[in-house]
Design a protein around this nucleic acid. Structure first.
Lengths: 240, 240
DNA sequence: CGTTAATTTGAGACCATTCAATTTCGGTGG
DNA sequence: CCACCGAAATTGAATGGTCTCAAATTAACG
């Protein structure tokens, strides 16, 4: 009740694309509906025609697609403060599923209202475009990760990415990262099986790189983990 | 000499986002520099700060990244008429390499000039945003392809995608698709090795699905190839 | 035609998978 | 607070898809 639903979003966007008072105001005063969402629920379904975009207020979510044989590939992870489907602002039909990873709080914003903002405020248009461009850059890195790195490197890379994004969002406390992924979900994100993910995580632990239990990741040796994960943060486009 | 460099682009964008005469005119009259580019040349380099965006006039190109061990992953393929790095319009530093697949003709357009258009013409802003959104959707499908499909399916899927995109661009003649990829490049695009790509292509040929030699792809049984490739074209977002 | 790049083939090794069983963990109700 | 339950994590062993390495064949091109 204290602050508008979209205020944190305005702050985040403002860091990358400076917004005028007008623009900030216009964004914040967009009508947005808050909804709770249980664990593992679908937020957007592939093939669906949507009329809103969904902002993640609390809790993690992920995008995924199924292949013919029933296997699932997780395409990206999303942490609080991020849009999970801003691209649907322009794309009429969703090309993938979005699911909650835990119990979440969501803000639904009308697509047409958002589009209207882009017409009136070029900086907001830029901010939205940029948001989806960073998504795309992360997708590209995932293609590389899943296509050309071995299991250990793949997992280390994913952990590095998530850690850095959590840092940037200010959600880290005492070096402990929230990590609400089961090993099966981690496997679906890296293109591995759950069994092999398990064994590979054990290797990372034995190497003294991380501690990982359900919902809590601790990184003991950031430099070496980075190294093992062949990680370079350029693709996150933080530096402006 | 007959028509402006960007005229085909204006036509393509107009199909998805109707442009006014003004907008079309503004786009077409953007200063653009035409350049030839030899085979296998770098068009954009990872880490580079760019001042232009590059439109592919003739010939194929691809985006790629290297991993620590020196392996390469191709992230996307580009056919004539497409931008190869429109995202660099807003992202100051390129997060991946772009390379020509054959001798190509390119049009270089100033980033600031493009951005200026987005400020003045919302429809052009939409067209550009949409262009990058479709790129991102293709990236997502590639994550799935490389992450969760076996070799045969992966290759068939890639062939389906390329065939459809070439159809849409009107570049197909007598059911023969240009296909200027070596098997090694095909391997880098699917996350396989060249050897295994070779064997898998032979399987596709033996199944009577395709004929493929350097630079010429023929699809004998589209329905079955689609099926084998677990292909659904929704992610290309052609239907509007 | 000669020379290099690209494709093809063979055989063995390995990373990751599959299947199945066991153990641990987290949450819930008595 | 403990007993119980289902979900998640872990372990083992065997299989298999893909890789590696190397050599041979074919195609492309000046």
């Amino acid at each position: 009740m204290d602050e508008p639903l979209l205020a944190p979003l305005a702050r985040r966007w403002d860091q990358r694309v400076p917004l005028s008072a007008d623009e900030r105001e216009a964004l914040i005063s967009l009508p947005a509906t808050r909804k709770s969402c249980p664990k593992d629920a679908y937020i957007v379904r592939e093939g669906e025609t949507t009329s809103t975009c969904v902002l993640l207020l609390k809790g993690f979510a992920y995008r995924q697609k199924f292949v013919g044989e029933g296997a699932r590939q997780i395409i990206s992870l999303h942490i609080p403060g991020e849009f999970v489907d801003l691209q649907n602002c322009l794309l009429p039909v969703s090309d993938h599923n979005v699911q909650s990873l835990e119990q979440t709080e969501l803000a639904f914003v009308s697509k047409t209202a958002l589009l209207d903002l882009t017409v009136r405020y070029p900086s907001l248009a830029k901010a939205m475009w940029l948001d989806t461009l960073v998504d795309a850059s992360i997708h590209r890195e995932w293609v590389v990760n899943v296509g050309r790195r071995d299991a250990k490197t793949r997992l280390a890379h994913l952990l590095c990415e998530l850690a850095l994004r959590l840092e940037a969002s200010g959600a880290v406390r005492d070096g402990i990262y929230q990590f609400p992924l089961t090993q099966e979900q981690l496997a679906d994100a890296t293109g591995l099986t759950a069994v092999h993910t398990n064994r590979t995580l054990q290797a990372l632990r034995k190497d003294g790189l991380i501690s990982l239990s359900h919902n809590a990741l601790r990184i003991h040796d950031w430099k070496r983990l980075r190294d093992v994960g062949d990680f370079s943060e350029r693709y996150l486009h933080y530096a402006v």
